[in-house]
């Protein structure tokens, strides 16, 4: 089990986060699907699901490009677990949301814009 990836979670840009994850520049893939609303009325609780149809999916990460810390979560998928996870994230503003998938040692991604009516990171 990997230790918490501080440098990836602390990263302030997509490129630094990707590089701290070892993902480099992932290839866009139609086999990675993001399930999320087009418009989120409440940025504090935005449901995001990711399904990977890539064989040997080992890891799924969710990143929110315009959040101060863009990496939201990384899920390690052992053999026997389906590459299909859902969670809820905070979004401060309208942003692209990335799903980054590691499959067979290579990285792939998909992205989807979610419009946020009321930001969920303020206070």
């Amino acid at each position: 089990e990997a230790a918490w990836n501080k440098s990836a979670f602390d990263a302030k840009t997509l490129d630094t986060a990707m590089s701290a994850m070892g993902a480099g520049k992932p290839v866009e893939s139609a086999d990675v699907q993001i399930t999320a609303p087009d418009i989120a009325e409440n940025g504090a609780v935005v449901p995001v699901g990711v399904v990977s149809n890539l064989p040997n999916t080992e890891q799924i990460s969710i990143m929110i490009e315009k959040n101060p810390n863009m990496l939201a979560a990384t899920f390690d998928i052992p053999a026997g677990t389906l590459p299909d996870v859902q969670t809820r994230v905070k979004m401060g503003q309208t942003s692209d949301v990335y799903a980054v998938v590691k499959a067979d040692g290579k990285y792939y991604m998909a992205k989807k814009e979610i419009k946020v009516t009321l930001g969920g990171c303020g206070g």
Partner: peptide, 15 residues
């Protein structure tokens, strides 16, 4: 069956 790492962008009372 699953291990995960979370950052602060996961919502309050995580699902």
């Amino acid at each position: 069956v699953l291990s995960a790492q979370f950052g602060a962008s996961v919502s309050t009372n995580p699902y």
